[in-house]
Structure formats: C-alpha cells, structure tokens
Amino acid sequence: MGSTANGKTLNLKLRIWRQDGPAAVGSFLDIDADRIPVDASFLEMLDLINERLIEDGVEPITFPHDCREGICGTCGVMINGQAHGPEKATATCQLHMRKFNDGDQIVIEPWRAAAFPVLKDLMVDRRAFDRIIEAGGYISAPTGTPQDANEIPVPKEVADTAMDAAACIGCGACVAACPNSAAQLFTAAKLAHLNVLPQGQPERWKRTEAMVETMEDFFGSCTNHGECHEACPKEISLDFIAFMNRDYIKSKTKNRSLASQ
C-alpha cells in the first residue's frame, strides 16, 4: 500500500476524534501517518489509515462518505477547525493531500452541533435537515397532474437564481461552521429555490413559515457571521438568507386569512 505514481509522500501527525456512540465519552486518537501519497484524496488518506489500523487489530475509524465526487453530501469533517478543510468550495472528498505539507498536524473532528449528535467517531445524525424539507421544502405537484412543461415560462435569470440556490448538497457544513449552529443557509437555499419560481408561488407563504419554524425547533439562531458561506462547498450565497428573512416576515401577514389581510 502507498505506492504512488509520482512517488511523493507526506509524513503527518493526525489527531482523530473517536467516540463509540451518541452517549459515549469521546477522545482524540493520535496517529503518526507516514508515507501518505500526495495524490490521495483526504478520504483515501483515511482509507489508508483504516487499512493500517485493521492490520494492527484496531477497529477502523467510522467516517461518512459515499459518492466521492462532491455531490451526494454524505461526507464532511472538521479539518483543523474548518468544515471540509482548507480548500474553498471543496467538499472533504474532493480535497487532496497535496494541499498539505510534510510534517503537518491535522486535527479531524465530526461536525459539532447540538442538532447533529455524534453517532460514531466522525459520523453524525443530520436527520433534522429532512424534517425541515418535510415541513414544506417541496412544490405539491402530484404525479400525472401537470400541464406541458413549456406552459410555465420561467425567465432565465429566475431559473438561474433557483439553480444557484438548489445547488445545496445538504452536507451540513454550514451548521458545523456556524458559532450558533444555525441552519439558515441550508433552509434558505431550499426556500429560495422554490420561492423564486412561478411554480412555487401557491405554497410560498405556508412553506416559508413552516420551514423557518421547523428549523428553529432544531437549530440555533443566525447572527450574520457568514461562516456558513465560507464553508459551503457549493458557495451558496448569503443573499438567500436575507431573502428568507424577508419572506418570513411577509409570511406572517400573508398567512392570515385573506379577509383579515
């Protein structure tokens, strides 16, 4: 193991969070990680460490991962205190070891947030995100009912804005990066995607109130630090949070009965 095309490797000092379960007390495991190929991805580095641990009879580190293309949103760890690590607009799985230097110490922790309890080692429970979507993160269009797609023209700039917001991969880095563990960026991304589109208008105000209030049931409050945007692998704009705040205030009037508006 560890043979590499260009032969360059790194010797690293890793501090990795280990925790048996949600109720267990966790601690850091220090590992001298020698001969890490620079061409390995960050997760392939963890694969290598796990192979070595297994060889030594130590249970490997549990870490979340799946597509390894930066799109499924499964992966994500704190790397030296930064969600997804040092490279901007890059999910953990797309980060490569050539971004580190020989002799570096790398501290690897799970997302830290009350709404994301640690399940094991670096894996957390993000189901609160699903609850926010279930609260209203959809357009009700039962299968088979719609008209021809081109009967709803959507101006290009509206479609582009919706797509900018919809690019969110639901990884949770925004929550992990936020000092308040707020989920405003995640919620605003879905809300704006649907609320700017003509198809999203009928349910706009109900959706807004339900999603925001469900979010508040689980997550902290936003104080405009902007760390979420910095950590976001898809660079979702903070403007969407402003959009959500405006729609939320409006929703309080719009959701009154029509006669009382």
Binding site: Y138, I139, A141, T143, G144, T145, P146, Q147, D148, A149, I152, A159, D160, A162, M163, A166, H193, L194, L197, Q199, G200
Partner: peptide, 10 residues
C-alpha cells in the same frame, strides 16, 4: 412536465 412542475430548475 412532472419535473418542471415540481420546480426542477432546468
């Protein structure tokens, strides 16, 4: 038609 109605940002 279905996906456009759901708000898929084509």
């Amino acid at each position: 038609d279905q996906c456009a109605a759901q708000g898929v940002p084509f």
